[in-house]
Design a protein around this nucleic acid. Structure first.
Lengths: 338, 338
DNA sequence: TTGTAAGCGTTATCAG
DNA sequence: CTGATAACGCTTACAA
C-alpha cells in the first residue's frame, strides 16, 4: 500500500507538493478550484498529515504533558478530564506521566521532556520531591509550565490552586463548632505546600478558638495505606481523648474510617471526621462523610487554558496569572453535632 | 541560548554529527574514548534528542494512544495506571483521549490518529458507538490496536476482557441464594458487548434457578446520572416486588442506593444490591456494597504489553492473543441473606 | 573508527 | 497563483 502523503497527493494531482500543502492549510494564495480538487482527493484517500514532520518543521507539537502523582484518585482523574477538555478544544494532545509520588521518577520524566516532545507542561509535584533543580532546569529550556494543586513555590510561573489555608481553617472550625475539643490533623508527609497551608489553617483555627495546638495530634501520613492504618490506630489508642479528625487527604480519611470501625469508635458520636475529598460516594458512606471538595475539573481546565494561551502567544507565563479557586465544605453526618 | 542538538555537540567536539549520534546510541563502531567525550558533553549540556526528528526518521514514535470513554471512573483510572506502568517500562509515552461515550468524538479522535502520532492504540469503545467503520479504517492503515473491556467484536485483533458472562451469572445466582426472587438488571444502554454478556449471564442464572426472566425488570441506563435516578425510581415504584438488583455498572449501583434511601427501602432487608464496581470505599458504604470487581490495573497492563510486544516486533496482532481475566465477587452486607 | 550525504514529510522562502 | 528548494534534527548507508 503506497503511503498517502503530500508527495503522493501532488503526483496524482499533477501539482507541486508546496501547492498541495498550501491548499490543505487553506492558504489564500491558492485558487479555489485547486483547493477543491486537492481537498477532494485528500478526503478520498483519508489523508492525515504526518504529525512528526509537521512538529519538526514548525517546532511546535500541539501536545501538552501532564505530570501527576497518580491517576487512580478522583481528584486527579477529574483534573485530567478538565485538562483534556481544554486541550481538545484547542486541538492539543495530552501526554500523561505518573510519578507515583516518587522523586526519581519525576526527575526522569522531566529530563525526558526536554526532548521537545511537548509544547508545555502541567504539573502537580510528587510528595517525595524536595529538590526542584530538575524543574528549574526544564524551565530554563523555556518550556512553559503551569503548576496545579501541588505547586512548586520556587519556580516563577502560574499556579492554579485552591484556598487551602481557608479550607483548613474552616474544616477545623467546623469541628470545633460541632463540639470537638481535641482535634487531630492527618496530612501527607513532608513539605508539600498545600499541606503546609492546610496545617496553618488548622493551627490558626485552634488558636482562634482558644484550643492549644498540640504537635502530638498532628500525624504525617505515608505512601502506604496499610501503614497509615497502623499509624492512625496508634494515635487513637495513645490519645483516647481525640474527638475530632481533620484529614488533609482523602485516603487518610478513609483509613480513619477503617480504624474507627475496627476500634469501635462511633462516628460522629465518639469522633467526628472531616476530610478533603472528591469521592462521589461520600454521601453514601456509613456515616456520610463531611468533605472539603476541591473543584478538580475546573482546576485542570483552567490550568490547561493558561498554559495553552501562553503556548499559542509564545509569551512567558507570569506568576501573576495564577488562579485560586475555592473549595466547598459539604457538611454531612460524620461531623453532626451531638 | 544556542540550542543543544547533535550539530552543536558535534561542533564543540570537533566531530561529525554522525559520530556523535552513534556515540550516544552506544554503537559498537565508535571508540570508547570518543564515546566518553561525547557523553560527557551531552550530559553537561543536558542534551536530550529531539523526539520528533527521531520519530520522523525512524517512523516510530515510541508513543501509544489510549482512547477511553472517561477517566473519572475508578476502573479506567486503574487501567491507565497499568497501561502507564507497562509503557514506562518499555520506554513508551502515553497519549490520552476521552470520548465521553460520544460516537462523533470517537470518530474524530480515530481519524486524527491516522497521522502517525502513535505506534499503537489501546481502546475501550464508546457506548454510543454502533458503526465501527472508523476503527476498521484505522486498522487498515496497519496501526496495531488492542481493545480492552469494551471491545469491538467486528475488528480482528486481540482483546483483553473479563469473564463477563460468568460474572453476570454469579452475581445473579448470589442474589438468588441470598433469597431474592424478583431481580432487576440495570445495564448501560445499547449494544456494548460486555453488557450483552452480563445480561446473558443474568438471564441464564434466572432460568437455571427456575425464575422466569421478565423484560420489564431489565433497565437500560443512560448517560446522565440524574436521569438514571428517575428511571430507577420509576422501576422500583412500578414493581414494588423487586427484591434484588444487579447493576452492570458502578454508577447505576450508586444511583440505586440513592433511590433506595429516598424511597425508604432498606438494604439488604427489603432489597439486595450487587454491582460491578472498582470503588475502593465499597466496604465503607451504608451498607457495604457487594461487588464484582474487575482487575482493572491488570487489564490495562496486559493490554499494553500485548500492544507493545506487537509494535516492537512489527508483527500483526492476532485475535488469538486475546486474554480473559477473572473478576472477583466480594460479598458484603448489601446482599446479606435475610 | 570517522565522515559525507541522503532522506523522513512537512513548511517557508523565494522566484517565476 | 504555482513551483522549486532549503531547512527542521536525526539516522543510516556508503565512503574513506
Amino acid at each position: 500500500m503506497t503511503p498517502v502523503n503530500l508527495k503522493s497527493l501532488a503526483e496524482q494531482l499533477h501539482l507541486s507538493i508546496a501547492t498541495v500543502s498550501r491548499a490543505l492549510r487553506d492558504s489564500h494564495e491558492v485558487s479555489e478550484a485547486t483547493k477543491v480538487r486537492v481537498r477532494a482527493l485528500a478526503t478520498a484517500l483519508n489523508y492525515e498529515p504526518n504529525a512528526y514532520a509537521s512538529s519538526l518543521r514548525r517546532n511546535v507539537s500541539k501536545t501538552i504533558g501532564v505530570v501527576i502523582p497518580k491517576v487512580a484518585n478522583h481528584f486527579f482523574a477529574l483534573a485530567i478530564n478538565g485538562i483534556e477538555e481544554a486541550a481538545r478544544q484547542s486541538g492539543y494532545h495530552v501526554l500523561i506521566y505518573l510519578t507515583h509520588d516518587d522523586y526519581a521518577r519525576e526527575v526522569a520524566i522531566v529530563q525526558h521532556l526536554k526532548g521537545g516532545r511537548v509544547d508545555g507542561l502541567l504539573m502537580s509535584v510528587a510528595s517525595g520531591t524536595e529538590d526542584f533543580a530538575h524543574i528549574k532546569s526544564l524551565k530554563d529550556t523555556n518550556l512553559p509550565i503551569v503548576f496545579f494543586d501541588r505547586v512548586c513555590a520556587e519556580v516563577a510561573t502560574a499556579k492554579v490552586t485552591t484556598n487551602d489555608y481557608e479550607s483548613g481553617y474552616q474544616a477545623t472550625e467546623h469541628l470545633i463548632q460541632s463540639g470537638c475539643r481535641t482535634i487531630a490533623h492527618l496530612l501527607i508527609s513532608n513539605n508539600l505546600s498545600i499541606g503546609q497551608f492546610r496545617q496553618q489553617g488548622y493551627l490558626d483555627a485552634l488558636t482562634a478558638h482558644g484550643l492549644p495546638p498540640d504537635p502530638d495530634l498532628v500525624l504525617n501520613g505515608v505512601m502506604d495505606n496499610e501503614q497509615n492504618v497502623v499509624l492512625i490506630r496508634e494515635l487513637l489508642q495513645r490519645r483516647p481523648d481525640i474527638d475530632g479528625i481533620f484529614a488533609s487527604v482523602e485516603r487518610l480519611a478513609i483509613s480513619a474510617y477503617h480504624v474507627c470501625k475496627e476500634l469501635g469508635r462511633r462516628i460522629p458520636e465518639d469522633i467526628k471526621i472531616i476530610g478533603f475529598s472528591n469521592l462521589e460516594a461520600a454521601s453514601l458512606l456509613d456515616p456520610p462523610l463531611s468533605t472539603i471538595t476541591q473543584p478538580a475539573y475546573d482546576i485542570g481546565r483552567e490550568a490547561a487554558k493558561i498554559l495553552i494561551r501562553a503556548v499559542e502567544k509564545k509569551k512567558d507565563i507570569l506568576p501573576s496569572q495564577s488562579l485560586v479557586l475555592n473549595s466547598e465544605l459539604f457538611q454531612r453526618r460524620s461531623t453532626a453535632a451531638g
